[in-house]
């Protein structure tokens, strides 16, 4: 098999949660570490509250912008129901799921009931080496009154737990380069995640 170790990350969620910014930050941080990167994003209809998934890959040399099925190292799900859709990329042997315990309603659901988080986790289990959940939206709402920082908080968790092999200082630098407004709050949310209980 290939000597060229590649890191594959899927960030899934709902349009408007800032997933592309998160992807850009990761890509930038990997770039600052001299890695080759590829990122793939979708826009358009997905902006209007549809499902969104951003894929980021980095390593010595990366060709494909898309991750193959069962080849994600990490799935960051910003919305717990969306985590289910990323199972395509999950593999029992290696994939870590980091899930924001947050549920976003869509008018498309009608009166159909969503699964409870316990049921969701059980469904993901066959695709995950390990599942971690954090209530990032609650935490960033409480601490900063800014639910949009949930993504940065999740990123902070993933980096501080070593799920992504990038140096925190490079991610902080990438936040400065990428985030258009509120850099200080973003950095605070990122750093706060070190104390998260997962």
């Amino acid at each position: 098999m290939s000597k060229n170790k590649k890191i594959n990350i899927v960030i899934s969620g709902v349009g408007g949660q800032g997933l592309i910014t998160l992807g850009n930050i990761l890509a930038r941080a990997a770039f600052l570490e001299g890695k080759d990167i590829k990122m793939s994003e979708l826009h358009g209809l997905s902006q209007r509250g549809g499902s969104v998934a951003v894929q980021i890959r980095f390593g010595k040399k990366i060709y494909s912008p898309l991750i193959s099925v069962q080849e994600a190292d990490l799935v960051i799900a910003m919305e717990r129901n969306e985590a289910l859709k990323s199972c395509l990329f999950g593999d029992k042997a290696k994939t870590i799921f980091l899930i924001n315990d947050n549920s976003i309603f869509s008018p498309a659901f009608g009166d159909k009931k969503l699964d409870s988080f316990e049921v969701i986790k059980n469904k993901i289990l066959p695709f995950a080496k390990k599942i971690y959940s954090i209530n990032a939206t609650d935490i960033t709402t409480e601490k900063f009154d800014m639910p949009v920082l949930a993504g940065i908080y999740m990123l902070g968790c993933a980096i501080s737990k070593g799920f992504i092999p990038l140096k925190p200082e490079n991610v902080l630098k990438a936040i400065e380069d990428i985030v258009p407004r509120g850099i200080e709050d973003n950095k605070k949310a990122f750093n706060l995640a070190k104390q998260s209980l997962i």
């Binding site: 709902v14 349009g15 209809l45 997905s46 902006q47 209007r48 509250g49 549809g50 499902s51 099925v69 069962q70 129901n81 969306e82 289910l84 859709k85 199972c87 395509l88 869509s106 008018p107 498309a108 659901f109 159909k112 969503l114 699964d115 969701i120 469904k123 993901i124």
Partner: peptide, 17 residues
């Protein structure tokens, strides 16, 4: 080519803001 059955969840259509 593995035939992976992704667990089902409710479809999220795009919607008006």
């Amino acid at each position: 080519l593995k035939n992976i059955e992704v667990p089902k969840t409710l479809k999220r259509f795009p919607s008006l803001c």
